[in-house]
Computed example of a mutant assay.
Amino acid sequence: MSAPHTVVVIGASFGGLPVAHALLKDVLPASGKDYKLVLINPSEEFYWKIGAPRAITRPSKLPLEKALLNFLPTFQKYGDKFQFIKGKATQIEPTARTVSVSTGDQVHYDQLVIASGTYFDSDIWSTSRGTDALRKEVEELHAALPNAQTILIGGGGAAGVETAGELGDEYGGKKEITILSGGSRLLGRLQAQKPGQTAQQMLEKMGVTVTHNVQVKSTEKQGDKTLLHLSNGETKTVDVYIGATGDKPNNEFVPKEWLNEKGRVQTDEHTLRVNAPGATGVYCCGTVGSYSDGSIMDTKMGYTACVESIRLDLDGQGKLTASFPSTADANMKPDHGARTKKIYKKFKSEVQIVPVGSQQGVGIAFGWGLPSFMIKMAKSKDFMIGNAAKLIEGQA
């Protein structure tokens, strides 16, 4: 008997889970082939990291158990067409078309989806090093916060602002809370300056000190305190330090020739096929891809294009031949395969919603500033936790 057509998905978060469900529900059964889907991930739990700022700082308002959900039961309905390997992908071998895993497994792929996302220096933001590491760090933070007198958040992006807002809500005026922005303003990734300025005003009213143009360069644990070495040459000792910056692409297993200068997987921005030598039948969905600016929107709205490209290539309408020509002629361009109306069209306008505590927030959509009450309704109330269960079911 011939081996089944095997699709391997690396990563089980905002990109990998929706792709896996869509393939198993519709695409693979309609192909007429004997098939199997293998999902590789360090944990069997999905982390709703959208809610992390509240889950890590205010467990009474958002318990970690609500943000960390076991996704395996949602795949039971697919029977033996689905296989889960709990481990980290360690190497992709394009010639043999295999993925090696930290468990010792070596899995053949006919089609491969890279959806490994990003990782942080701190385990409180992702499950890239497994759920145990995340739980341990969050539990330590929960134990330290009530008695802490000095708290510092490193990073003035959305995660840092949201975390500072949660702490301001809970402890403003009772503890010394500081947020360091490495740039000249908060939310520096946005071209629009108003959201960051408004967020700073909100935080300061909550009793949070905002300091710009200073970064945490390194940290040292000194008993139950942390010594911070800052970019301005100063040091500061605090009871609790929360790093909220520096996410990096989870790419150590990806062939180097598949990565761009920023370490992202070279991905066609419309079809989400990987554009690199030897990347035959390989796709990328999520923040590890070069098409993404790191937003969950790029993942959520791009996954349908990824699934459609897989379907086309499975049906023979696309190209499962090498995506780059063998010649060194620089004028020749890779064949990206067939396209349909389901290609991904990236938003050119900025869209970001940032709660600053549970009652307010800042945001921008398509060039328009969003009023605080809209942010409260959309996200501040519960960080959209109700969508977590829908996502792991393949419904969101």
Rank of each mutant, 00 (worst) to 15 (best):
V161T: 03
L17P: 09
S60R: 13
E44G: 13
L312H: 02
D247Y: 06
A396L: 15
T327Y: 12
Y109A: 10
M1A: 14
T127D: 08
S380G: 07
V274L: 07
G157C: 08
K49I: 10
D132F: 03
G263Q: 10
V107C: 08
A396T: 04
F120D: 11
T237C: 00
A389V: 11
Q317E: 10
P334G: 13
K333W: 12
G165L: 02
D34C: 00
R189S: 15
P146G: 04
G183Y: 03
T74A: 07
K376L: 03
V214D: 10
A192E: 15
G168H: 01
A89C: 12
F46E: 00
G182Y: 10
S43A: 13
V113W: 12
G182W: 09
D34E: 14
P255T: 06
L145P: 09
R264I: 04
A133G: 01
K333F: 13
E220F: 11
N251W: 02
F383H: 00
A115N: 06
L37N: 05
V362K: 13
G11A: 06
E269V: 09
S43G: 08
A330P: 12
L203C: 15
A338V: 05
D132L: 08
G51T: 08
S380K: 04
A276W: 03
A276Y: 05
D335G: 01
T127R: 00
K379N: 07
D110V: 07
Q215I: 13
R264K: 13
F84C: 05
L145H: 05
K174H: 10
Q222M: 12
R58C: 10
S60Y: 01
L259F: 07
Q359V: 02
L141Q: 08
S358R: 09
T287Y: 00
T321P: 02
K225M: 08
L134Q: 11
D110F: 15
A133W: 04
G160T: 08
T226L: 09
E44L: 04
T150L: 02
T321V: 02
L272T: 03
P94C: 07
K81M: 02
R339P: 01
F253A: 13
I85Y: 03
S128P: 02
R129S: 09
G289L: 05
A330W: 09
T211S: 10
E162P: 00
M374D: 01
K25L: 01
L145I: 13
I92R: 04
P249A: 12
K381T: 11
V351D: 00
G367Q: 09
R264F: 07
G367H: 06
V354C: 11
